[in-house]
Amino acid sequence: MKVEIWSDVMCPFCYIGKRKFENALATFPGRERVDVEWKSFQLNPDMKTEPGKSINDYLAEVKGWAPDYARQVNDHVTNLAAEVGLEYNMDQAVVANSFDAHRFVQFAKTKGKGDEAEEQLFRAYFTDGKNTADHDVLVALGTAIGLDEVELKSVLSGNEFGAAVRQDVYEAQQVGARGVPFFVLDRKYAVSGAQSSETFFAALEKSFGEWEKENPQPLQSLAEGAACTPDGICN
């Protein structure tokens, strides 16, 4: 069964939601038959990469908040992240457009490394204070998970996978995603936001139960012996 997750690297609840979903999936009996696919979603496509600007100042500008209030909001999400074992250093976060980061993930998906790429990006942005729009940073993250350095540099230097990013954004609109994280299970059920692991587990149970009825697991042979086939051959 496929679970699609729309997210953006700059969304603090996306990383938290990732962990909560992973915790639920880790204890789910049918986890070996669940395929997770990460999908692109840009919260602010027009964002300019500004390494010298603090995330608090950025939020104050775009949302009209006072800098102190922006800091309080980030402190709050930092505490929520800590509850699931994540370390957020929001004062180090780099204001960066996420389009190339999404292209990086799209490329990684073709190599079976989508989940690893998402994890690297989230940690780079929220924990390590790295510029996730910088191609050198993305190449370093990619090689750390086994992606080919030359191939990745070639992808980032051009426009490859840009169409895949835009397709995901379009699909998000079609499935009703108005924000992220947004989880779609078997294209039947949706879970919006960084819900509790219990909520994710219940959603997995419901969607997987229905999916399994339509996709029964083949019987596994425990032993084979002499038998006759419908065509009359016995051996």
Rank of each mutant, 00 (worst) to 15 (best):
Q92C: 04
Q92R: 14
V94K: 11
V95N: 06
N97T: 02
S98A: 11
F99Y: 13
F104Q: 04
Q106N: 13
A108F: 07
A108S: 10
K111C: 08
K113I: 11
K113C: 08
D115T: 14
D115Q: 12
Q120D: 03
F122P: 15
R123H: 14
A124H: 08
A124R: 05
K130I: 01
T132L: 13
A133S: 14
H135A: 13
D136N: 13
D136W: 01
V139M: 02
A140I: 01
G142V: 01
I145S: 04
G146W: 06
E149T: 02
V150S: 09
E151M: 05
K153G: 11
S154P: 00
V155F: 05
G158K: 09
G158E: 09
N159D: 14
G162W: 02
V165W: 08
R166Y: 05
D168M: 07
V169P: 04
E171Q: 15
Q173H: 09
Q174T: 14
V175T: 08
G176Q: 09
A177T: 07
V180P: 00
V180E: 03
V180N: 03
P181A: 10
P181E: 05
F182N: 06
F182P: 03
F182Y: 15
R187C: 04
Y189D: 08
S192M: 10
S192D: 06
S192L: 10
S196I: 09
S196D: 10
S197Q: 14
S197R: 06
E198W: 10
T199R: 11
L204E: 03
L204P: 05
S207R: 07
F208T: 06
G209L: 00
G209F: 02
